[in-house]
Nucleic acid binder design. Sequence first.
DNA 1: TTGGCAATCTGTAACGTTTCAGTATATTGA
DNA 2: TCAATATACTGAAACGTTACAGATTGCCAA
Lengths: 351, 351
Amino acid sequence: MDRRTSEKDGDTSAKERPTLKTLAFMTGLGVTTVSRALKDAPEIGAETRRRVQLVAKQIGYRPNRAGVRLRTGKTNVISLVLNTEREIMSFVSDIIYGVSEVIADTPYHLIVTPYSRSQDPLDPVRYLVETGSADGVIISRTQPNDPRARYMLERGIPFATHGRTDMGLVHPYHDFDNYAFAGEAVRYLAGIGRGRLALVTPPVGLTYYGHTVNGFADALSEVGASEVPFNTVSIDHSIEQIRMRTAQLMRRDDRPNGIVSSAAAATLAVVAGIEDAGLKLGRDVDVVSKQSSELLHLFRPELLVVNENFRLAGSELARAVLGWIGGADPGSLQSLSTPGEVLPYRHSQDQ
Amino acid sequence: MDRRTSEKDGDTSAKERPTLKTLAFMTGLGVTTVSRALKDAPEIGAETRRRVQLVAKQIGYRPNRAGVRLRTGKTNVISLVLNTEREIMSFVSDIIYGVSEVIADTPYHLIVTPYSRSQDPLDPVRYLVETGSADGVIISRTQPNDPRARYMLERGIPFATHGRTDMGLVHPYHDFDNYAFAGEAVRYLAGIGRGRLALVTPPVGLTYYGHTVNGFADALSEVGASEVPFNTVSIDHSIEQIRMRTAQLMRRDDRPNGIVSSAAAATLAVVAGIEDAGLKLGRDVDVVSKQSSELLHLFRPELLVVNENFRLAGSELARAVLGWIGGADPGSLQSLSTPGEVLPYRHSQDQ
DNA sequence: TTGGCAATCTGTAACGTTTCAGTATATTGA
DNA sequence: TCAATATACTGAAACGTTACAGATTGCCAA
């Protein structure tokens, strides 16, 4: 089937999307010259260059992505690899928005590559690399020894991880300083007289699990507080699980009087569990929680929160991959976001 | 630069991604034959077809997307167009997951095309169509008279809208029956003795604003309840705004004893406002709210909730676009999701 | 035997881009 | 003046795919 309208080419009739050939016809130049003029190649006369670029702008020329991709292998695509089941509730959207912000004024498109619980997390990455579907990849749920990062390093495809690895290999990442977060949380709780603390951990196996646990432990001994073990749940567990386990915990004699929670959704369940056990937040126990949107204070004013900005994470990750694609040193594309201070509740009218 | 490894082609050395040429060499057939054999064209011998497909599977042949796209114009891309600022908090991720589920075993990729508040919502759609970047488009924040839907209908590009239009034009959509939701909410509240009701509306201008308002109004007169106007906010307003306005509302003498809220985030603010005014949920006022995740009951057990499944919406929308792309009648690709019943709080242990 | 035809298979061109290997003209050095 | 060189441009080829227009073979009816 021929989608062409007019006879041969160089039709003035418009309607068809302009190509280099169209531009060549209009300017009276060769296709090669036009191509080079548009990308500021050195061997093109200054005036010609300007003329071509002017005409191109006028008629709204946009390079055909398929043409470029076929010829050069450059896809102009960044892929965000997401777990469809675990990455529950929000913050995925924040990351997407963050990434979008950065690539908005680049030729890049963002494609979302999902994988489900049952799959090997390496599958989607392997697919992307094997089919050459993206110039750069962003992954999350990073592990200390992450096969995906290793794989992509081997294949030489630029990527950035949300969270750090610990393999002795250098690659771009963005991470929230969960060591600092857990430490700050403990210190704050200790500061208001809470000396028996429990931690709702990140998912076991992910790198920031370790960071959080270490930050928690180090600060505990620093301030001389003690830990009430609470290893039966992580923030990956269901709301119901966390709620039930928390209630169990809080009914024990040696219950904690302070809890540090690594995610807002889990915190909701924790608070419910606390109240199931007949205890009162702020009186019997205090909870410091990370949150990514300003909702926890509405939930219970007594909650103590630390904000984590996932939109920023998205932007940083995008910048990192683009940087690597652009040839920057991977080691220079690592960023760590420092947690703000622990925020107690202040009603907006108080301010 | 030549990315080739071996001499001419048909190299047995692997490493390079197999193309039709590779397959042609391996099978001893022509490229054309291989191409046709892979797509079950009729003029290919049964045995040849099987042979080619076997070899293709063995060596993991995957058609080069750029080649296909350049030749046929088919992108194998679905674009989800999102407002980066308004579509706050979650449910965007649910929609993405829903879409992903459906396109997972198709050759389609999902690209996310964002636009910001300042932009004309038509911009990203125009971009997609003009550059031919997608075979199908999904849009949300649908308006009764939606320029984007009109535009895409004119250009003949398949799309589906999250929410209906009201232009007398037929196109695929998925919508939640907000008329029914608002009606059910009012009837439920009336049933528990709440006769003075206020509505926290969807964003003015979107189609489901009208649906919600009408469902609310019709049910009001049906049950003989009265409306307490609350037009100063919609769910698009900030948490602070909603909270403040609700507090104002609830301090009036003619305050409502029942509130219907169109979104979970807004409901959090509404409840905060109620409590700011010194009133108690479940005693002084009841609130029925839509929610997309099971969080509101943790927030306040007294809340009455109706669930809206955005993941389902995503799946339905994806199915709709794919259907249209596949040649189905657009009119047959419309679906409406009926709200479940209003759910009062039941602790999981009660069940 | 011949012509017709169905069944299979094939080469070429084209999609839009960039790279390679030029060509033509002007400019320079001696 | 002549050759060498720089400047500005160009056609052809290739990326991987599909559509078009054949080509080859075998078989059958006449």
